[in-house]
């Protein structure tokens, strides 16, 4: 995956991205067994036997020893790997495409890369190219794949009749049509041409709350439609 590869290259070039630099530098570097064998040999007073050599080799393969003697001193790269984990590939490598995005939580605006595999989001990571975030994401941004793929997401319209105690199913098309009918009715019911002798040309029956988590284009259409309806009680989190 060319895009993903480019990412990784970028990461290693990033000043301040020491974690990534470490990982690249330490890749495939193992402890120098020869050095260690000599060291142990010099500490021993008797000639090593065959069984002893096998023990030493096994001992030298321990992650802690590899960490202590190799270049991966923090044990975050090669020293911590097993034969199995060496064969694993990150999900990002197998992605069909990588899409530029932006974190949906706070207003810092950290850049994200969305990795897509078989039409599904496989991973979301920070984009190191961003002058704002330089590849970093906070716990929320890092968890945003779960936001998208959460099993508790509601994906079907739910409808609660007046005075009902349970939700019901409702077809999306029917639901939007019912909402349009209610807008028309309530708008008219609470229509007001004048207040205190001044022309107002508005409805006081319809309110809206929300927008700070939405796109500019969405806010634009909302305000445009509400204004044409004559609805003025339009608010969002910026007031809260």
């Amino acid at each position: 995956m060319a895009e993903a590869d480019r990412n990784r290259t970028c990461l290693t070039r990033m000043p301040g991205h020491n974690g990534f630099e470490d990982r690249a530098r330490h890749q495939t570097r193992y402890a120098s067994a020869t050095h260690l064998r000599r060291l142990i040999g010099s500490l021993c007073f008797r000639r090593p036997c065959r069984g002893y050599i096998a023990e030493v080799n096994a001992f030298l393969g321990w992650p802690a020893i590899r960490q202590a003697t190799g270049r991966d001193r923090l044990g975050r790269g090669a020293a911590a790997m097993s034969k199995r984990s060496e064969t694993l590939e990150p999900r990002t490598v197998k992605a069909d495409k990588v899409v530029d995005s932006v974190c949906p939580y706070c207003a810092v605006g950290c850049a994200q890369k969305v990795f897509v595999k078989d039409g599904k989001v496989a991973q979301i990571e920070g984009n190191p190219a961003s002058p704002i975030s330089r590849g970093r994401l906070c716990p929320k941004g890092s968890a945003s794949k779960q936001l998208v793929t959460s099993p508790s997401r509601v994906t079907k319209v739910r409808y609660r009749r007046p005075y009902a105690t349970e939700w019901e199913d409702l077809d999306l098309d029917t639901a939007v049509d019912m909402i349009a009918d209610r807008v028309i009715k309530t708008r008219k019911q609470f229509w007001e041409w004048e207040a205190d002798g001044n022309r107002t040309r508005r409805t006081m029956g319809i309110a809206s709350l929300g927008g700070a988590t939405l796109d500019n284009e969405e806010n634009y259409l909302m305000k445009k439609l509400y204004t044409a309806m004559g609805a003025i009680q339009i608010e969002n989190q910026a007031r809260i």
Partner: peptide, 9 residues
């Protein structure tokens, strides 16, 4: 005020 849209909030 009898109708209310709550959108992402």
């Amino acid at each position: 005020c009898k109708g209310y849209f709550v959108v992402g909030e």
